[in-house]
Design a protein around this nucleic acid. Sequence first.
DNA 1: AAAGCGGGGGG
DNA 2: CCCCCAGCTTT
Length: 388
Amino acid sequence: MYSLEQKQYFSAELMSWYKRHKRDLPWRRSRNPYHIWVSEIMLQQTRVDTVIPYFERFMDKFPTIEALAEAPEEEVLKAWEGLGYYSRARNLQTAVREVQERYGGTVPDTKEDVFSLKGVGPYTAGAILSIAYNKPEPAVDGNVMRVLSRYFLIEEDIMKGSTRVLMEKLAKELIPEGEAGDFNQALMELGALVCTPKSPHCLTCPVMAHCAGRAAGMEDSLPIKKKAKPPRPESRYTALVEGTGEHTGKVLIRQRPAEGLLARMWELPHTLATGAAGDPAAAHEALASHLAADGLGIDSLHLLMQAEHVFSHIRWDMQVYVCRPEPSPLLSELPELLPSHYRWISREEMEQYAFPNVFLRILNTYFKGTFQLKEKERRSLHSRQSVL
DNA sequence: AAAGCGGGGGG
DNA sequence: CCCCCAGCTTT
C-alpha cells in the first residue's frame, strides 16, 4: 500500500531536513544506551524542554547503570520529583537492576530482551534499539502517529492498538538502509517542530509536496482520535498540621502506600470529603476522625488555601486547613505514637522527601507565609528596640 | 480493550 | 483559562 514514490520521497526529504534542523539535546551527545534509555523514559508524556534539566541532574547523580542500580529508591524518586508518572522512575530502577544482574550491566540489543525490561514497551524498545544500536526497528510515539496519519491520510483511530501496529509496519518500511536511529529521531523531530498538533507549519514542511492530508485539506482534523473521558472530581480536605513543643516550626507529612496512585511519594494528610464540601465544621470533623485513626488528635484552625491537582482520571479539589495537635494534658508528657510512615519536618527537610507538585505548592505557600510572619515579627521587634 | 497513572504548554 | 498531549502497566 501507498506508492513507492510517496514513501521514498518522504524518507529522503525528511533525512535531508533533519540534518539541517537537528536540535542539540543532552542525550544526543553520545550513543550511550543508558543515556538513550533514561531520556526515552523521561520523554514519555513529557516535553523536551521539561526533560532537559531533569536529565542533566539525573545523569550527574546516577552517571552509570551501576550507580542507578545501587541508589536508594527514595533518591531516585526525589530526582524524579515534579516530572509525574512516578512509576516510570520505579520501573526504570527495577529494569536497571535487572540489566546489572542478568546482562552484566550492558543494555541488551535484541527486541525480545529490551522489550521484557520493566517500563519498556513497543515505543521505547524501538527507540533504544534504533537510536543506541541503529537496528531497523520502528519507534512509534504520538508525534510519529500524527505525522504518518497526515502524510499518508490514515483515518484510523490512533487510540486503537491495531492502528499502532499498522503504523509500526509502515514506519519500519520507511527506514532508510543503515539510518534507523537518525530516521526515527527525524520523524519525531518533524512532529515536534513542524507537524505540530495544532496549526501545523505546512509551508515550511520538507514533505508538504506529497502530503496526502494536506492535499485533502485535512491536516487540522488528523489524526483521528476518540476523546478521553473527563477526570472525575474529588473534593478533599487536607491537613497542614503545625508541630508544637519539640516539633515547633515543623509540619506533619506522611508517605503513601507502596502500591497505587503516587506510590511511596510523600504528602500532607488528606481525606475524601463526602457530601457538600466547603463547610469548615465538616472539614474539621472529617480531618479529625481521619487522623484520629492514626492516633493523632487535632484542632482545625483555619482555611489556608484551596489547591487543585489534575490527574488524567481524577481531579482533586483540595481545601487546605492549618491544624494543631490537640492539647492533651494527660498525654502531653508521653511521646507521640504516630505510625512510622508519618514524619515531622521543617522547611529545610523538604529536600529529603519526594512530593507531588500539588503538595510542594501548598508547603511552599505555607512556609512562605510563616517566613513572612517571622520577618514581620523581627522587624517590629527591631523597631521597638530602636525606639528604646 | 479499557482503565489507571501526572504534569506542562499552547492558543 | 480551557483544551490538548500520550506510553506502559494492570485489569
